[in-house]
Design a protein around this nucleic acid. Structure first.
Lengths: 184, 184
DNA sequence: TGACAAACGGAGTCGTCGCTCCGTATTTTC
DNA sequence: GAAAATACGGAGCGACGACTCCGTTTGTCA
């Protein structure tokens, strides 16, 4: 698992471009978009895409990984704030992302389930777990749920948000939030 | 849009078999399963499948339509019962179905969104709408939501339920239900 | 039961997509 | 600046899937 030699300058540039292009194309057309589309968007040849990502699945994985990392970063950044708002802010952010980029929900369900690189899933679960625990201790979230349920809800909300107006999305989120608060 | 001549006996039989087979195959492998798989499962030739359903999409539509019809039937049957239990019972039933059959959630989101035959979507929306209104009048569901939000939640819950244990599913549903009840 | 329409089966066509291969171009190194 | 190492591009291959076509079979009706 060593790093090997550093990549040549152009190779690094292309790799980054491909990832960026893949994210855009997958977001627009879903992950079933053709590799050629990704290559064209990135301005490179197909061969180059396959050199960097030996199978299509590796490319999808890499894109997902980047996205989940970003979600985890958001969670980490929010953990400075007050527990309750941090929690609900993260949830909202995640769902909003899914609404914009159609493939985004796939990330979550893959990462949560049996899917792709379990490193990522674990990483996300850990961060979300922290957020949850803190919010529970602060009395902002009911105590009787764990990360599993939370991620299930997150996945569901994200998928539901895909084809729905902003108003409906907000309202549906509100309902979930009400359910998440401690009974009184 | 007339009915044309009645189908020959064998044609009727085959049509029914194909639908049944398609439902099973799609449930097991998702809608991207090949038409040949469906034909084999139904015990007919590919040609026959395509004669009854001129494009793959028509077959998918037909399967979806049958499923949504069944959901609507369930809703209608439940509407005899008490409003509150009817409502939550239907919701639970729908989500449970989705958990068993992986393509089931697609039905819902298609029917709800821009997808397939809008007749079906409308039909479902109407029945769900009745259930909802009655439950609201009985004070079992908060008054500030409409069918749109409800269907969004239903879709989300169904999709979330796909890869999750029964326990987690139940818990997540409970949370949603708490959110759906009127605030105290 | 015979004749005709209706339906069947599945080999074959066409298009697409993932992936490979190798001659050419770009970096890096000395 | 020349040689060696690395990376690039994209034509082409093989697999697969949707859909067509037509010779054969089955059902229907008199």
């Amino acid at each position: 698992m060593g790093e090997g030699r550093p990549l040549r300058a152009d190779a690094q540039r292309n790799r980054a471009r491909i990832l960026e292009a893949a994210e855009a194309v997958f977001a627009a057309q879903g992950v079933s978009a053709s590799t050629e589309d990704v290559a064209r968007e990135a301005g490179v040849g197909i061969g180059t895409v396959f050199r960097h990502f030996p199978a299509k699945e590796s490319l999808i994985e890499a894109v997902f990984l980047a996205r989940v990392r970003r979600l985890a970063d958001k969670a980490a950044a929010l953990s400075q704030a007050q527990a309750g708002p941090a929690f609900y802010g993260f949830f909202t952010y995640a769902v909003e992302q899914a609404a914009t980029q159609s493939a985004y929900a796939d990330v979550l369900s893959e990462a949560a389930g049996n899917g792709v690189p379990s490193v990522v899933g674990t990483e996300l679960a850990a961060t979300v777990g922290t957020l949850l625990t803190r919010a529970q201790q602060a009395g902002a979230v009911r105590a009787d749920i764990g990360p599993e349920e939370l991620i299930a809800l997150l996945v569901g909300a994200s998928r539901a948000a895909e084809r729905v107006s902003a108003d409906v999305r907000r309202k549906a989120l509100d309902i979930m939030f009400d359910g998440l608060r401690p009974a009184r």
